[in-house]
């Protein structure tokens, strides 16, 4: 059931970027997610799929340093030394979150400042990290807006004036501007229509490949998983029931639930 991936064979850095060991989060009696362990290598995209309420978002919040898990450990190798993100001070964790990490929320309103212009939104992380040259900040913001296919003329518009798809692209630019090593995405295409989804996925694929990002993408959409991810983790009732290479899991599902999930995909 568990696939072992040999990083050397894949030509990846031998040390995993993120090591997760036995992460569990409980809501009182109920299980949020239980005993999740995996490694994520640099440049790798991991998908977490499962139905609503299967603990995907809970797990992501634990990994991203938002909610402390009740058990388990999350090790991050951003620098030379592995860092247990929940044993370091909150200050360190927050600094990580605005430099080496990025979180793309399902709802752009959670990730954007709605009353700050697009340029300000993209520039915020630069200013958080000490940039104090207006011209350079604006230049970088412009560059990133263009990379996510937002017209340069919209740099001083507020996110409110943007469509849903543009807001999501803006959020991605805002996260990627600090050149993070690891990006967490919670349903990045949720609530978008199919054609906008397709363009966003295309964009994400290009960016992830170009920047050599490692990413963890939570989704319930198997098409998104197929397009973007290298490896897949299938969750049910808070537990990982199957994990392996994406194509393998989707084309040859072993666990009964995964079989159900793959056969439930609508084909038009």
């Amino acid at each position: 059931m568990n696939m072992q991936v040999n990083p050397q064979e894949l030509g990846l850095d031998p040390a995993p970027l993120l090591s997760v060991a036995g992460v569990s989060r409980f809501y009182g009696e109920r299980i949020g997610c239980a005993d999740v362990s995996f490694d994520l290598w640099p440049g790798e995209v991991l998908g977490i799929v499962g139905e609503s309420g299967s603990g995907k978002s809970t797990l992501l919040r634990c990994l991203a340093g938002i909610d402390k898990p009740d058990e388990g450990q999350v090790l991050f190798r951003g620098g030379t030394e592995p860092l247990d993100i929940y044993s370091v001070a909150e200050q360190e964790r927050r600094r990580l979150m605005c430099t080496a990490w990025g979180i793309v929320h399902q709802n752009p309103r959670d990730g954007l400042r709605m009353d700050v212009s697009a340029g300000g939104n993209v520039g915020e992380r630069l200013m958080d990290n000490g940039a104090r040259h207006y011209g350079k900040i604006r230049e970088t913001a412009l560059d990133w807006l263009q990379r996510v296919e937002i017209a340069a003329g919209r740099i001083d518009d507020r996110p409110r004036q943007f469509s849903g798809g543009m807001q999501q692209r803006l959020q991605i630019a805002r996260v990627l501007v600090s050149e993070p090593k690891l990006v967490f995405m919670d349903e990045p295409t949720g609530g978008l229509d199919v054609s906008v989804q397709a363009r966003l996925l295309d964009l994400l694929r290009v960016l992830v490949r170009d920047l050599g990002l490692a990413a963890i993408i939570v989704t319930h959409d198997l098409a998104v998983a197929r397009l973007l991810t290298d490896r897949l983790m299938v969750m049910k009732d808070g537990r990982v029931v199957e994990q392996g290479l994406t194509d393998q899991v989707l084309d040859d599902p072993h666990h009964a639930y995964t079989q159900l999930l793959t056969s439930a995909v609508l084909t038009v």
Partner: peptide
């Protein structure tokens, strides 16, 4: 309070950025 405690003052700069941009 956390922002003061850890001198995370990027947001203040965002406000000035907005002024100049507009």
């Amino acid at each position: 309070r956390k922002m003061h405690a850890w001198a995370e003052y990027g947001l203040m700069q965002v406000k000035l950025y907005e002024n100049i941009a507009r």
